[in-house]
Design a protein around this nucleic acid. Structure first.
Lengths: 123, 123
DNA sequence: AATATTGTACTAGTGTCGTAGTACAATAAT
DNA sequence: ATTATTGTACTACGACACTAGTACAATATT
């Protein structure tokens, strides 16, 4: 189970906040393989947003093989472990880091400086 | 002097590409304090885009005290060294890192993993 | 079989962003 | 003074993103 919290004035789109929280839930072990997620309608009511917003989040995660949806049944955490799409994962890391370096580089932050900061921010 | 290169199908807005290249030019020492940048019209012709796109980039950098513009004269690299706004700089790094960690965290990348990757990508 | 529950498809409205067109204002050059 | 050059202001248009409303289709339940 998972408790969703949305911040409408966050700048981050609602559907993306949902995606992130699900991904984090899985990564942190809070959500386990095969577990059922709230139905789009139930979550829509709970969060007081439109059901399509939930559906959009679910769908994107389904495309990424993180979730599995079936009409009339529900949406579940994919049984095939996420670790499987090793290439996708590696690419994501590379892309994210690349963009990150591009920005920090433009601002003149050195490699050392960046890594120091990241180590400090370890949550 | 500096040679601008724009990639329209990059996803990154043109005005932002200009901003990044100017910032990098300064950070890398390629652009020096007091140096004049191309006029909005000259650069617009050279890059075959609208002059307002250039103006938008210049303006944002002027707000950040990176550039100084004067009507009828031109746009110049700010004489007061960028190092001065120490706080802004620190905040920028914190914010950028924070967002970066937020994304990587959602995808389940560990702190170690991230830092290893960044070290590898050292250009 | 009939009904309820679930995800899906289609449409539309709203807002924002990026870029461009055009006219204006300030400074420099003649 | 007049003209040229420079940045600026205003408007508008197209594209896209985000969310919502509503109807449809598939599965489960009774």
């Amino acid at each position: 189970m998972i408790n969703f919290i949305l911040d409408p004035k966050n700048g981050v789109p609602l559907y993306r906040q949902i995606i992130n929280q699900i991904r984090f839930g899985i990564a942190s072990g809070q959500l386990k393989s095969g577990e059922q997620l709230p139905t789009v309608r139930a979550l829509a009511v709970e969060l007081k947003i439109n059901l399509n917003t939930i559906a959009k989040a679910y769908k994107e995660l389904e495309i990424q093989s993180v979730l599995e949806s079936q009409q009339g049944t529900g949406t579940f955490i994919s049984s095939t472990k996420v670790e499987l799409n090793h290439d996708e994962r590696a690419k994501k890391l590379t892309d994210t880091c690349s963009e990150f370096l591009s920005v920090t580089n433009a601002y003149g932050f050195s490699h050392k400086e960046i890594i120091e900061k990241l180590k400090m921010m370890k949550p």
